[in-house]
Nucleic acid binder design. Sequence first.
DNA 1: TCGCAAAATTGATATATGTCAAGAATTTAT
DNA 2: ATAAATTCTTGACATATATCAATTTTGCGA
Lengths: 189, 189
Amino acid sequence: MTNLEQYIQSYFDVQEEQLTSIASRFKYKEPAKNDFLLKQGRQCNQLSFIQKGLIRIYATVDDKEVTQWISTPGYFVTDLASFIFSTPARWNIQALTDCELYTIEKEDYNSLGNVVPEWHVLEKLFIAKCFIILEERVNSHLFMTAEERYNKLLQQQPDLFNQVPLQYLASMLGMTPETFSRLRKKQLK
Amino acid sequence: MTNLEQYIQSYFDVQEEQLTSIASRFKYKEPAKNDFLLKQGRQCNQLSFIQKGLIRIYATVDDKEVTQWISTPGYFVTDLASFIFSTPARWNIQALTDCELYTIEKEDYNSLGNVVPEWHVLEKLFIAKCFIILEERVNSHLFMTAEERYNKLLQQQPDLFNQVPLQYLASMLGMTPETFSRLRKKQLK
DNA sequence: TCGCAAAATTGATATATGTCAAGAATTTAT
DNA sequence: ATAAATTCTTGACATATATCAATTTTGCGA
């Protein structure tokens, strides 16, 4: 089983016979560092699995730039709202490093319903998982302080802390780089 | 077209012939004020449309009680994660007033795929809409201050402000009742 | 390898929001 | 209608986090 097939299986829980058929619709891509996969305002027509590299999702609104998330190998990346509803993208998606991706175009993605009988069910579950991830993030703001969010991220994704500019992590946790830096200092003691 | 059918249509964008069939699986209920539709830790087996009344979704974690949302007529209410994945519910769901609901049981809901051909597609879109609502809420914490969140809610749901205890609104916006009260005072000037 | 640009840190200070306690207002139950 | 309970408001104060500016460190391109 290829890496891509493993990724697909872990997300979509699809039967093995159909894996090859699904995987064949993804195309290998190697965006270079700083390349944009998507720009705010455009339409998002792709869903990508990250084999290698790091990708930042961010937006600029009223001069304020906010990093929404950093995606890492083994995960997918897209602007789900734009991808599903063909609305203008809210997010920029940019490679933080040279990357290796498997990308499916929206029209191929949408044709999967004709190929894999259970596809719409799997897709539903996939989106529901995305929902749960977001619910968790809302909760982190309702239940936790900035410091607790910092500690949680440090625990869950320690590697990120020496792979990406820390200001991006600060932003996705909803705090300034200065606050992030001070929490970091506190931790190191 | 009944109220219920209108609600279903607005959420699921289903064809008119199938509306009756779907609607027939919902049962009318009248929970009284303070009745629980769901308790944290249990499994959520119901999805309800609110015809009348107000419903609070909240959770208590480590002695901290957080209101996640207040649902109003014309909207549905459930613990989506628990409903879809049969996991223990994260949330309590409680009637803030006497209510009139249309409720569908999970097994009936799951059987809709056999009744309405396009059901899984509609369901996918429904969940995707829920995703977008949550994305919007995450953004409100990343881009906005407490005061901006207050003003946004006041603008979008002014009625809530004289229908439910304000401490619940404060909580769902991620602030204390005192802060909420002071922002309120500021507004009234 | 050097030099520049970006990022991170640090200190001083400002501001937003939280905490605690008391009292006023409102709602609910008897 | 009254009493009790809950909710809301207010003030004083504490704390977390933001802002601004200066400096150091790091990383990158020539």
